[in-house]
Design a protein around this nucleic acid. Structure first.
Lengths: 113, 113
DNA sequence: ATAGATTGATACGTATGCGAAACGTTCTAT
DNA sequence: ATAGAACGTTTCGCATACGTATCAATCTAT
């Protein structure tokens, strides 16, 4: 990817402004980060795994998942192999959300000369 | 800028994860959007102007500015021409913040194959 | 069988953000 | 001089997120 610092910031701004304008489901940076990891990093995803990846405490991840599950963007399933563990899985709604977010970034990118 | 949907999302994830890891001053999407507008859109910036640009109410902008000013990322000055208006200005700290954020995005971009 | 470790969730007190309505100050028009 | 508009802020009640400490359930090792 060839891209300069100024372009990078413009890209970020464009996408950011658009999400704010739409007053999209207002996700925290944390919540968004968890969401993106679940969808863009190969599974399986557990609470402790996400916590390690994002350098967060487990309660923080649990709460982020509470919010994301409540919105239908991810799903929790107890791991049948180890009933202590929880597997965080993708949903159709979450896939749509991410896909639309991708388009949004692309539009922001195209708006850059 | 040539960039695909998958790359766009990977880019976003990379930068997002990095900010969460650093537990950077935890700014709302709104606060970030205001910050980016102040620095990447030509001045002058007023509360009403930012509100219009982001489709927000004025109190929402005021609160975002409260937080940003408190963190030293922007500065407020009464417009001498019209003492009702407030001019939102850049600061050194804010410039540094944005510059570092730009680098962060660039690193995320380079991490994409 | 049982003591310990591990996993994720919860409880608690605190901090921060939100939308709607009302506010004081300053400018404008008559 | 005065009524009204425009600007940004503040107040109110409410919702949500935070970090720390603690919890119940489950697995592991002896």
């Amino acid at each position: 990817m060839k891209i300069g610092a100024r372009e990078a910031l413009e890209l970020w701004r464009g996408a950011l402004v658009e999400t704010v304008r739409r007053s999209a489901p207002d996700l925290t940076a944390r919540q968004q980060a968890v969401l993106f990891c679940v969808y863009l990093v190969p599974p399986p995803h557990t609470v402790r795994g996400l916590a390690r990846e994002l350098k967060l405490r487990k309660p923080a991840v649990t709460r982020a998942l509470d919010r994301l599950e409540e919105t239908g963007l991810v799903r929790r399933r107890t791991d049948p192999e180890d009933k202590r563990s929880v597997l965080v899985q993708r949903t159709v709604k979450g896939s749509v959300y991410l896909s639309e977010f991708g388009d949004l970034i692309l539009r922001a990118a195209r708006a850059i000369p």
